[in-house]
Amino acid sequence: MNALTAPFVALSIPSPAQGVWHLGPLPIRAYALCIILGIVAAVWIGERRWVARGGKAGEMQDLALWCVPFGIVGGRLYHVITDHDLYFGEGRHAVDALKIWHGGLGIWGAIILGAVGAVIGARVMGIRVLPALDALAPGVLVAQAIGRFGNYFNQELFGRPTDLPWALEIDRDHRPAGYENVATFHPTFLYESLWCLAAFAVIILLDRRFRLGHGKVVALYALLYTAGRGWIETLRIDPVELHDVGGLRFNVWMSMVVFALAAAYLVWAAARRPGREESVYRTS
């Protein structure tokens, strides 16, 4: 901190005093509430988009019964696999891997298994997979924006130290080793939330303008999200097992790979599958 930045530190974002409240013996966890609220928002947005595409009301709610459990399991598995030393080894307790309310959902695992759930559910329900995913994808960005506030309440996954006016105050007990005497950090939860909301707005505008179909909305979601996640990830200082692969965090590499695949699909689909599906239902 210097004389120029000191007056602005008072504008920093305070961390919540607590992330858990109790109704008698029942703990109410802010992290879980953020995840639930995000899911509700995603399903509501997806439902409206699905009906606008010619689907029946209630079908995205039914599809969510497949997507959400698969997505939560996938997100947790990805987190446990990439941060396995938090749960296994000397002095660790493997049962902690099941305690999802403490935080720890990997977005890539959630997307992959969530999509698997969507494919299974869509086939059971007799609806086309790509129109369903195109309907749901923008709402997922809103869900991610809301869900990141769970990290805020848990005081986790913040970025490097900073004295910027919007710096996030972190309690000493939540600071990683080597940063015990640093009080303010980049609020990466906020950066990602705002990025997701901006990406949501861009997708909605482009979809209305060009009537995107055949999975192009999903590809656009992946393209825009990874473009932001890549640079936000470079700010984070939380330790991960796959921290440094070729000088970059593993999730930065994942973002670049997914970005490239999404861009390639968009180019291919724009040339080979223009426009939008005539029907959202399978004919056979």
Rank of each mutant, 00 (worst) to 15 (best):
Met1Phe: 11
Thr5Gly: 06
Thr5Val: 12
Thr5Asn: 15
Ala6Ile: 10
Ala6Leu: 08
Pro7Gly: 15
Pro7His: 11
Ala10Asp: 12
Pro14Glu: 05
Pro14Cys: 13
Ala17His: 01
Ala17Cys: 00
Ala17Phe: 00
Gln18Ile: 00
His22Met: 03
Leu23Trp: 12
Leu23Ala: 10
Gly24Val: 05
Leu26Glu: 06
Pro27Tyr: 12
Ile28Asn: 05
Arg29Ile: 12
Ala30Thr: 12
Ile36Leu: 06
Gly38Lys: 03
Ala41Cys: 06
Ala41Leu: 13
Trp44Thr: 08
Ile45Tyr: 02
Ile45Asn: 05
Ile45Asp: 13
Arg48Met: 13
Arg49Ala: 07
Trp50Leu: 01
Arg53Gln: 04
Gly54Glu: 09
Gly55Cys: 03
Gly55Asn: 10
Met60Cys: 09
Leu63Phe: 01
Ala64Asp: 06
Pro69His: 00
Gly71Thr: 03
Ile72Met: 13
Val73His: 02
Arg76Ile: 08
Arg76Gln: 03
Arg76His: 09
Thr82Ser: 14
Thr82Pro: 08
Asp85Gly: 04
Asp85Lys: 11
Gly91Thr: 00
Arg92Leu: 05
Lys99Val: 11
His102Gly: 09
Gly106Ala: 14
Ile107Thr: 03
Ala110Asp: 00
Ile111Ala: 07
Ile111Phe: 08
Ala115Gly: 11
Ala118Glu: 01
Ala118Trp: 07
Val119Gln: 02
Gly126Tyr: 04
Ile127Ser: 08
Arg128Val: 02
Leu133Gln: 04
Leu136Lys: 02
Val142Ala: 15
Ala143Leu: 05
Arg148Cys: 14
Asn151Glu: 10
Asn154Tyr: 15
Asn154Arg: 12
Asn154Ile: 13
Gln155Ile: 04
Glu156Pro: 02
Gly159Lys: 00
Thr162Gln: 13
Ala167Leu: 09
Ala167Gln: 10
Glu169Asn: 08
Asp171Val: 04
Arg172Thr: 14
Arg172Tyr: 04
Pro176Tyr: 10
Tyr179His: 02
Asn181Lys: 13
His186Gly: 06
His186Phe: 09
Pro187Gln: 11
Thr188Ile: 12
Leu190Val: 10
Tyr191Thr: 12
Tyr191Asp: 06
Leu194Pro: 10
Cys196Pro: 04
Cys196Ala: 11
Leu197Tyr: 03
Leu197Val: 14
Ala199Trp: 02
Phe200Gly: 11
Ile203Thr: 03
Leu206His: 00
Phe210Thr: 08
Arg211His: 15
Gly215Val: 10
Gly215Glu: 00
Lys216Pro: 14
Val217Glu: 04
Val218Pro: 00
Leu220Met: 13
Ala222Pro: 10
Arg236Gly: 01
Val240Gly: 07
Leu242Phe: 15
Gly246Glu: 15
Phe250Ala: 13
Val252Lys: 04
Met254Val: 07
Met254Leu: 01
Ser255Cys: 15
Ser255Ile: 04
Val257Leu: 06
Val258Gly: 03
Ala260Gln: 05
Ala262Ile: 04
Tyr265Thr: 11
Arg276Thr: 06
Glu278Ser: 02
Ser279His: 01
Ser279Ile: 03
Arg282Trp: 05
Thr283Asp: 14
Ser284Cys: 09
Ser284Phe: 12
